[in-house]
């Protein structure tokens, strides 16, 4: 992707940028979807750029809204076995199953 932290959207989003993001997101886009996605992303990112107009000097990022008092502090469960999902129930829901395993394509190729 082009552009640095100072001016993220100074340069228009290229087709290559869109394909790179799609690769990071593990999303296969049809060739005809790429241009539409580029236009949509460009419009949204240009709107999001308004965030730069807000003075955030010294502001601590807020990851989630629940106040510590309402949260009741950090909650840790006691280290005791509890109820878990049945293994058979999980295997039965896998798209491809082989015996007691969920089947996937070969992860390591011969060269690895």
């Amino acid at each position: 992707m082009s552009g640095g932290t100072d001016s993220p959207s100074a340069e228009p989003l290229s087709r290559g940028d869109v394909l790179k993001v799609a690769r990071l997101a593990r999303l296969r886009l049809h060739p005809e979807q790429v241009d539409r996605m580029r236009n949509d992303l460009a419009a949204v990112l240009s709107h999001i750029d308004r965030l730069r107009g807000v003075d955030c000097t010294g502001v601590e990022p807020m990851n989630q809204p629940l106040a510590a008092s309402a949260r009741g502090g950090n909650r840790l469960d006691s280290d005791e076995p509890g109820e878990t999902l049945d293994v058979e129930a999980i295997l039965a829901r896998a798209p491809v199953r082989e015996g007691t395993f969920i089947a996937v394509p070969k992860v390591l190729t011969d060269g690895d």
């Binding site: 992707m1 552009g3 640095g4 932290t5 100072d6 993220p8 993001v21 990071l24 999001i48 965030l51 730069r52 807000v54 955030c56 502001v59 601590e60 990022p61 807020m62 990851n63 809204p65």
Partner: peptide
């Protein structure tokens, strides 16, 4: 993604506060 995290995500969390 790398290079954009601070400009977008971190900043959005600051504006959230």
């Amino acid at each position: 993604s790398s290079g954009y995290y601070d400009a977008y995500y971190r900043r959005a969390l600051q504006v959230r506060r």
